[in-house]
């Protein structure tokens, strides 16, 4: 009985010590719980492995049923500029105001780490989101699977995105009423109107 109580107390002490050490780590070695921090290599590797393992094989093995035609690419680009670019950037770099403040940060989707994923994996991330990240699930949000597959077509095009295409996307990004008003004011000014 004494051994049992002793073991229980030792366990409590170990748990309390562990909690205290973890709290100290969060506060001092990890900048609190700031989303500005970068995940450690270990955390990133574990999370990536778990995320990958969590995708059902039936989804992973799906191939894009939408052919990569210019029309599909354009539709994917329009959709991406409207819904995705605010975090991922028009060029897919993830270098945006919102992306920089996320934990984990959006990846540079032009790189191999994203481009080597299967069509099904990319489709799955768009449809179902990624837990404990800023990536929401878009299925059930009024869109269709077809639209998500066109996004996959566009994601595959990101490494070849031209400067002209990127510039055209700026006109497709969502704007607030004040931004639209400001754009009109600037256009009027450039066209010789009064200010």
């Amino acid at each position: 009985m004494r051994l049992l109580v002793g073991s229980f107390l030792l366990l409590l002490v170990l748990l309390a010590s562990g909690a205290a050490a973890f709290t100290w780590y969060l506060r001092h070695a990890h900048a609190g719980v700031s989303a500005r921090a970068q995940p450690t290599a270990t955390e990133a590797a574990l999370a990536t492995a778990m995320r990958s393992a969590a995708i059902p094989a039936a989804v992973r093995n799906r191939t894009n049923p939408v052919p990569a035609t210019p029309a599909a690419l354009h539709e994917g680009m329009e959709h991406y500029a409207d819904h995705c670019a605010v975090c991922h950037g028009n060029n897919g770099s993830g270098q945006t105001l919102l992306g920089a403040g996320m934990y984990p940060k959006p990846p540079d989707m032009r790189l191999q780490a994203t481009q080597t994923k299967t069509d099904g994996e990319l489709f799955g991330y768009i449809e179902n989101g990624i837990r404990l990240s800023g990536m929401p699930a878009f299925s059930g949000a009024g869109g269709t699977e077809d639209e998500s597959w066109k996004l996959v077509v566009f994601l595959r095009h990101l490494p070849q995105l031209s400067a002209t295409e990127e510039q055209a996307m700026e006109h497709l990004n969502p704007k607030s009423p004040s931004e639209l008003g400001e754009e009109k004011q600037e256009a009027d000014f450039l066209n010789g109107g009064s200010h």
């Binding site: 605010v86 105001l97 607030s176 931004e179 600037e186």
Partner: peptide
């Protein structure tokens, strides 16, 4: 975001 992080000079 209203200015996309940029200053506008007119």
């Amino acid at each position: 975001l209203a200015h996309g992080g940029l200053t506008h000079v007119m």
